[in-house]
Amino acid sequence: MTNFLQYAVGGFATGSIYALVALGLALIYRSTRILNFAHGDITTAGAFVAFALLGIGLPFALAFGAALLSGALIAILFYFCVLVPAQRREATQLSQIILTLGLGLILQSLVAYFGGKEPQPFPFPLSDIEIYDVGGVVISQLSLGILGAALLASLLFYLLVQKTRLGLAMRATSENLPAAQTMGIPTRRILAFSWGMAALLGVIAGLFLAPLLLLDPFFMLEPFLKGFAAAILGGLNSLPGAIVGGLILGVAEALAGGYISIAFKNTLAFLIIIAVLLVRPEGLLGKEFVERV
């Protein structure tokens, strides 16, 4: 029983990682219908900025702040310099996806060139070794922090999107772009803001993940793919769905690994997703096209 709980708690900790990644992806998809393949790489770039600044002795708050800003900046620049010109020439949805992939490749390359390719320990205020023991089940301080960050971030975003004028504008832009433009919403700025926010969320995830997974140019590869899957499981256009999807994926994966087969852990996780999607094609909390043919 203790073992079962330990697997579940471990899965929960992993799941909150996926949830943080999924949040950023869902935010972008909601507002632009683009799957952002550069999400992991923007995240990595942000984490490397923080790492470099910590290396020259800046305090955590400053370094992390700069990392968040630089991540947001990359995304906003990408939106204005690449996506807007492409959209002006009527780029399709698919070619916009490939554009994000291009950005990802460039960032990956630059990070590897300037940041080095060897794994690095990432200094962080929360400890990964410090553990809390509750009746034989342990969870590390860092894992708790990640879970907290994921929940807090999604709560703040929920409030931002649902309760503020800015959020209203964001929703309007994502629901119906021409109508929003007609109503005088500066849609381009709103979309740029969405990109920036999504990248910010990504970098937050990256800052929490780097101490857990060790920092190197490819440390977001696996979390990105799983976060992607989690976002879809939860329903790509739903922010709470991203959290739920991430947690379910993490726990399912851990239990499948523990009790069925560790070698097929990833396959089992995807089988669960496929099964869920066949029952609910729009994801757990998604509200998209409901159509039968």
Partner: peptide, 17 residues
């Protein structure tokens, strides 16, 4: 190499969607 690959992808798709 990936950066060159990425830049060519972006250039082509911006100018020729």
């Amino acid at each position: 190499v990936p950066a060159i690959f990425g830049v060519t992808i972006i250039l082509i798709l911006i100018f020729e969607p």
